[in-house]
């Protein structure tokens, strides 16, 4: 039985946060799904709220500080990522996007990602498809087909909507576990010094 690392990015701001609540349910379901497939998982949660200033500083200085660097490495070094954002003004939150902007190009290439979002109303649910999925397509991440959206009514329970949310969570977690178990454990982020062309190649204009 091998152990996989699962990074959970939550961009919720309030405490308690429904974004974090959804992230936790997706995490629990994914760990269970991995276990059914014979894999253990270590979970590391990145609460972006704690890095709000670090993210802004990174834009100004051009580098992430030590705390943010650790968060970035958690995400880029993971075998799979669960990314959950609240919907703000018809899209992912600015903090969520800013964190993604801090990541190096190629940092998530090939990484399995489960997308999720929360909002006050289900009318925002397509944010997952018109904003989140294209963003992760740009990063060349491997997004699982089911993305999970939770609106206020999903948490209310009673009329069957929360049972429906649970089914979506289980399905998405199963899809993520399938992708993860089908591939070797994650190599750490690519070393930028590993494939520097030789100077002869540079002189020939090959790089």
């Amino acid at each position: 039985m091998s152990t996989r690392t699962l990074a959970v990015v939550s961009a919720g701001l309030s405490v308690p946060s429904s974004t974090r609540l959804l992230a936790d349910r997706l995490t629990t379901a994914t760990v269970a799904a991995l276990r059914e497939r014979g894999e253990d998982a270590t979970v590391e949660v990145v609460e972006l709220r704690e890095h709000a200033r670090d993210v802004a500083d990174a834009f100004v200085t051009g580098f992430p500080d030590a705390a943010l660097r650790a968060a970035v490495e958690t995400v880029t070094g993971a075998d799979a990522v669960i990314a959950v954002t609240p919907v703000f003004t018809a899209s992912y939150s600015g903090l969520f996007k800013s964190f993604v902007d801090v990541l190096e190009e190629d940092a998530l290439t090939g990484t399995p990602v489960l997308l999720a979002a929360t909002a006050g109303t289900a009318r925002h649910s397509l944010v997952l498809e018109h904003a989140m999925r294209p963003l992760f397509a740009h990063l060349r991440a491997v997004t699982v087909p089911t993305a999970v959206f939770a609106a206020s009514e999903d948490w209310a329970g009673g009329d069957g909507t929360s049972a429906e949310l649970s089914r979506r969570i289980t399905r998405a977690a199963g899809e993520l576990a399938d992708v993860v178990t089908g591939r070797p454990a994650s190599a750490r982020p690519a070393d930028p010094f590993a494939d520097v062309p030789s100077f002869e190649q540079l002189l020939r204009g090959e790089a």
Partner: peptide
């Protein structure tokens, strides 16, 4: 270059 970002203390550490 770095104004309006990190504090002097943070930047001195980093």
């Amino acid at each position: 270059v770095y104004g309006h970002g990190p504090s002097l203390e943070d930047f001195s550490r980093e």
